[in-house]
Design a protein around this nucleic acid. Sequence first.
DNA 1: CATGTTGATAAAAGTACATTATTCTAGGCT
DNA 2: AGCCTAGAATAATGTACTTTTATCAACATG
Lengths: 171, 171
Amino acid sequence: MPRGGKRSGAGRPKGTGKYSESTKAIRVPESMVERILEFAHSGGFKLPLYGGKVAAGCPAPTDDYIEGMLDLSEHLIHDPASTFFVRVTGYSMINAGIHPDDILIVDRSLQANHGKIVIAAIDGELTVKRLYKKQGEVRLMPENDDFEPIEIGSEETLHIWGIVTNVIHTV
Amino acid sequence: MPRGGKRSGAGRPKGTGKYSESTKAIRVPESMVERILEFAHSGGFKLPLYGGKVAAGCPAPTDDYIEGMLDLSEHLIHDPASTFFVRVTGYSMINAGIHPDDILIVDRSLQANHGKIVIAAIDGELTVKRLYKKQGEVRLMPENDDFEPIEIGSEETLHIWGIVTNVIHTV
DNA sequence: CATGTTGATAAAAGTACATTATTCTAGGCT
DNA sequence: AGCCTAGAATAATGTACTTTTATCAACATG
């Protein structure tokens, strides 16, 4: 009892797979297999970013008012090779929105211009301050009235590790 | 002229590959191949996190004072399915370190308890406020003296989208 | 004619295998 | 003895192939 004959048009349709897209076999370290599968499945850790206005009384996030999909690493880190994090200690930059235990995103490849917030090493202590650099004078300015500016004279050497681009604060 | 004989001990040693680790072939969407290879190669977007103390006069980040390697997505997002981002507008939470254009990380799965900073929808407008919830009274408290608390009476319905866990501020 | 069943078809997923890359040893050479 | 080299050994890599999964057209059935 054959049900023979041509079957053109039959077959599994395209895009019916896990990713709705054709896939490729690649080789990755065994220890990362799980994370990479999660990464691939969630579309690269991208999550929705919502803007200000939403439908009246809307009880939950809706796609209507989405600004886009955002990946934190992609958004905050432009050059992984020159970026690192620093954990904040102390209150000297509180008026710049930098609190103790915050994590700073620091880029080593940016120019240390006047007015930038920098990570500097002074006497073996890591410090975050706003850089003042005008008319040959160099100072590290705190943003808290309880602290004094640090004057960088000819004796001291200023080692600037990098420029702060973002502050991550835990509420 | 055979150079025959045993060659025990010969052969390519383990861990001499790109990842210094044995690998596994997995299948990923074609459009993500590049990003995933970058992801795998950089060890999962992990970057160094430095603590407070460093060697005296040390001119550049050294491994000696590293706290660990950190991946932003992993550190800030505990449940991708219930997490989203919201862009801040307005100054009503400035004293909580939440500035206009900051990005908030919001978790929908957390309890909206008294004192938490929440994302709520009021009259079609998305708003971030501190939740006051005591003795049957519910209020949305700004953290800026120029703004008034919002009383939630029996007429209004409060739609809480989620709890703010982190603030990302661009300096 | 409507409905159900079966096997043809084709994509997706996973894996084994062939290929490539790397290192090391034994034997030859100086 | 020390240096050089062919090729033996083995891990790493990429891809071809096999297995699995999904859908649909043709046929049978009521």
